[in-house]
Design a protein around this nucleic acid. Structure first.
Length: 258
DNA sequence: ATGTCTCAGGGACTGAGA
């Protein structure tokens, strides 16, 4: 089974690339972030025609998340329970697999803008609420996966130029501590389960020819419970869609399970 | 060194957000 995540930076713009990538890669589940369209505009017909069941929570202009699945998708839930949030950043659903039900959580963590911004305060509060909820959810759902754009590069090796990013949003110590708090729940960063090449990233700024120079950050992650981690066979980043005409600024991440 | 992309509003460009 393949689980994947991709921040598409507008599903309206990127739908042709998503359909092409689904056909080429055939993930069982794809979590999307920054769909940037309200639910009436969601391309349900096109994605169902491609063989995927869909669950989505969108809004106009900003944010928006979705889960696409070739396997039966049930028990869809939107948002962090008990956390009041206008912004559509989280959707969860249960995927029926041969190995039993797996709970998939698709998250678009706040960016935070800059460490002196009120958006940074919101970011840390949002992650704190997510973590508190997942602590309980993990007890109910032994086979749990948290996929998405975390907007956090966990370690120096996840940043091409750590000195240039020192103390900034996406790499600041409080954000990294928040990431470690998720790990402390018993979640595993599937990417680090395996020996990886150096300088693998998932996001490159559109500016300054960052992609061509591989000046990126690894901020999109697939974390899974230990029960699921035991079956994880690989975790890779597919840079190919980032080379396309009019690409998203993020590349998809794929984890494969036995 | 705020350099790119997306979207909304409003009918050319500006501002917000990332």
């Amino acid at each position: 089974m393949k689980l994947a995540t991709w921040n598409v930076n507008s599903l309206k713009v990127r739908l042709p690339q998503v359909l092409e990538w689904l056909a080429a890669t055939r993930p069982d589940v794809l979590c999307l972030q920054e769909t940037k369209q309200d639910d009436q505009a969601f391309p349900r017909i096109e994605l169902e025609a491609a063989g995927y069941q869909v669950a989505f929570a969108g809004q106009k202009t900003y944010n928006g998340v979705a889960i696409l699945s070739r396997l039966p998708l049930t028990d869809v839930a939107v948002g962090i329970p008990g956390y009041n949030d206008e912004q559509k950043r989280l959707i969860a659903a249960t995927v029926a697999t041969d190995s039993g039900p797996r709970r998939v959580v698709c998250a678009y963590f706040p960016n935070g803008q800059s460490i002196d911004s009120d958006k940074y305060v919101y970011k840390l509060g949002w992650i704190s609420a997510l973590t508190a909820w997942l602590r309980e959810e993990a007890k109910r759902q032994p086979q749990l996966a948290l996929l998405g754009d975390y907007n956090i590069a966990p370690e120096a090796r996840d940043v091409r130029d750590p000195a240039a990013w020192e103390g900034q949003v996406l790499v600041s110590e409080p954000e990294r501590a928040a990431f470690r708090a998720l790990i402390a729940l018993g979640l595993v960063d599937t990417f680090r389960l395996f020996e990886q090449p150096e300088q693998i990233y998932t996001w490159w700024d559109y500016r300054m020819m960052a992609f061509r120079r591989n000046r990126g950050l690894r901020i999109d992650h697939i974390l899974v419970s230990t029960a699921l981690a035991a079956h994880c066979k690989s975790c890779t980043v597919d840079k190919e869609p980032r080379r396309a005409e009019r690409p998203s600024d993020h590349a998809p991440v794929i984890a494969e399970f036995g």
